[in-house]
Computed example of a mutant assay.
Amino acid sequence: MRRCLGAMLLSTALASASASASAGEARIDPMQPDLQDKASLQRGMKFFIDNCQSCHSLEYQRYSRSAEDLQLTREAMQERGLLPPGGEFHGPMRSLIPAEQAADWLGVAPPDLTFTARRRGSDWLYAFLDGFYRQGGPDGAVDNLVLPGVAMPPVLESMQGVQRRMCADGRAYDPDADDADACRRLQVVEAGSMTPEAFDRGIRDVSNFLGYVAEPSRLQAHRLAPKVLAFLAVFAFIAYLLKREYWRDID
């Protein structure tokens, strides 16, 4: 059964008052999308479909566009589970749960994620997915380093494991007693189903994929760039020869 990213980024609206851009946010390391890494983009698409699409849509991205850009045939999409049941190859990547039904279950419909990476950045997405932790015991309250006051469960916790927020001296973070800026380290205290390396690769891949989805035309731009530069180089050489011919008899 597919897991979904809960109401990922739905929590942005629910917790916006406590998630200002200044105080309390974690340092976000650069995580630029690598659009040349087709394997990463394909894995990221698979991760999204398996873990996110139950709740979230990519309304402005079509399966066929992803297949073309990621060099996948329709048959390969079906074999690898990249075209879920009921999904139309030339249709948009809609969530598997109707928005009205999701709104009834969650209180509000989970947001479309097509342009999230453009608004927030792939590095923000990566840090957000990696930033969930529990306060106290395994059943303690959930928070997020990147989005303090987050109002969603850590839906990837079964894969990542239970994380605790630690201070520089090795103590568990106590929000009532400790300085938040001095306690920025997360530590897995209960292992999940994936190794830390495998989980890190998974959230990097899906962040990479969402970075591609936000601006798929960049893949075409990358393919055209060498040809354009070659044309400009040839044109510049011809222009130089023409200029030299025009001015050869002028003192």
Rank of each mutant, 00 (worst) to 15 (best):
P175Q: 07
G24T: 09
A15M: 03
F132N: 04
S57V: 06
L241F: 12
A17Q: 11
L58H: 10
S193N: 09
S11K: 00
Y126A: 10
G121P: 03
A21P: 06
G202W: 01
F128L: 14
I49N: 02
D205A: 13
F209I: 10
R171M: 01
D176H: 08
G24H: 11
D37T: 01
F237I: 09
R164C: 03
E75Q: 13
I238G: 12
G136D: 12
F128W: 10
A103Y: 03
R119W: 12
R223M: 08
V108P: 00
S217G: 07
L58W: 09
D104Y: 00
D179W: 05
F199A: 04
Q160D: 00
V188A: 10
L125F: 11
Q42K: 13
A236Q: 10
D69Q: 14
D174H: 04
S193R: 15
L82R: 07
A191G: 04
R201F: 03
M194Q: 14
Q32R: 14
E215L: 06
V142P: 03
R244N: 09
Q220H: 11
P175C: 13
R120Y: 09
L156R: 04
R134P: 06
Y212Q: 00
V234S: 11
A233V: 09
R2A: 08
A23H: 12
H90Q: 11
L241A: 14
V162D: 00
A141N: 07
